[in-house]
Write a protein that binds this DNA or RNA. Structure first.
Ligand SMILES: [Mn+2]
Ligand SMILES: [Mn+2]
Ligand SMILES: [Mn+2]
Ligand SMILES: [Mn+2]
Lengths: 223, 223
DNA sequence: ACTAATTTTTAGACATATCTAAAAATTAGT
DNA sequence: ACTAATTTTTAGATATGTCTAAAAATTAGT
């Protein structure tokens, strides 16, 4: 039994981890297939392999969940992914919509020293460029207080903490409207009809659709 | 025909490149097998594949050599490898004997922007931690002026520019004797019998074997 | 030039990871 | 509870990269 995982195996663990956060409980074969853009039959094969390695619990037709060891491995990969994203934005002049693809590769580099030294070099960042929390060296990870902008009411004020969708197209949309992490938003109007919002951000008033408001993590501001 | 090369294919190109520098002309199947710690039969298979991709010239039983395109690819990988080594030593507190293994992984990350931004971030270094020259973005590369310490005579003085062998064991030996890039060395004696040398380095006098003197690139100092 | 040693290639096998198509199991609808 | 739709698994193929053992070609020695 090989302790070193292939990049593919690591990607499966990460996918299962992130799927169990939302849908909780056990994760279906199809959900994994969709997330990884592969076929259900391929997932079944891999799931058997990871199960033999005791990284996931799997019973035929019952879906899968990560074991403690599997969870540990997944968190380590996520830690690396997010640290590299911080590096790319802070030091290599990448925009937040360009980092994901590169971090997908960097996250598989195996060296504990590399990860921890990178963490130190970056001065132990707590969040990545998309507002996602970075696990510490022991695997502890803060979870999102998932308040979406969509849940706010007229006249409430908030600050943008993160994005749920971090696809380049969404991030470019936000860039285009100068919505960034830390931006303060006031909800001026909320349309009953399509749930779009009229908001004030800095000194601009704009209208954004529910597609947008459902993908922005925010913190409500007292008052 | 896939333009993206696998890590394995990249490693073959790099191996062939470095073998053609020393032995020049065409590189033998066995030499590649030894360099990559694999079997001759595996090399034959891969060599056919790279030949189909027009990255090497290959005729049965005649050995191989890189095409222009193959050379370009090899140099790009070497550029990445060496830039990452600089990063690890300068910013992540790695010793020069720890970087190679990690750079072997990092060199395969695909992103031209990543490479060029890293180069800028490092302020366009010309040499890696082992004294090897770093190709520029256009693939231009200085070649070693390969004067080895072994070729010097009694009373000649030189400065250490690089190491030929960059195995951890050799590098640790050098650390143990405080021999670094930039160290000035005076040849005090040269033994006829075993070619070992008595040298002066800083204010210490030490004796080093031919195994060592044959693996240190130096620049002679006028007088 | 012939034989022996060495190098290189081929043949056939195996492991990983993927796919399509068909079969089996589960779930949903009435 | 039965049937239909959906999900999941199996079976069989393909592609990559590796290996051992045997065959073929080259090179070296006399
Ligand atoms: Mn990402
Ligand atoms: Mn991210
Ligand atoms: Mn190296
Ligand atoms: Mn080096």
């Amino acid at each position: 039994m090989n302790l070193e995982l292939s990049q593919t195996e690591e990607n499966y663990l990460k996918a299962i981890f992130s799927l169990s956060l939302s849908r909780s409980k056990s994760v279906s074969t199809n959900a994994i297939a969709e997330k990884l853009d592969t076929k259900a039959s391929s997932v079944t094969d891999m799931v058997k392999k990871l199960s033999e390695k005791k990284l996931i619990d799997y019973k035929k037709y019952q879906g899968v969940s990560l074991t403690e060891e599997g969870k540990k491995r997944a968190v380590k990969i996520i830690r690396k992914h997010r640290l590299w994203e911080v590096f790319l934005v802070k030091h290599l002049d990448f925009n937040w919509d360009e980092v994901h693809e590169v971090a997908e590769q960097l996250e598989h580099v195996k060296s504990i020293k590399l990860t921890n030294e990178l963490d130190r070099f970056l001065e132990f960042p707590t969040h990545d460029p998309h507002g996602d929390p970075i696990p510490d060296a022991d695997g502890n990870i803060d979870h999102h207080i998932d308040v979406m902008l969509a849940s706010l009411h007229k006249n409430e004020t908030c600050v943008v903490l993160g994005v749920k969708d971090s696809s380049p197209s969404f991030l470019k949309y936000l860039d285009g409207h100068e919505i960034k992490l830390g931006s303060e938003i006031i909800v001026l109007e909320k349309e009953e009809f399509d749930n779009s919002m009229q908001i004030q951000i800095a000194d601009r008033k704009i209208s954004i659709s529910q597609q947008i408001t459902k993908n922005l993590f925010v913190k409500k501001l007292g008052k």
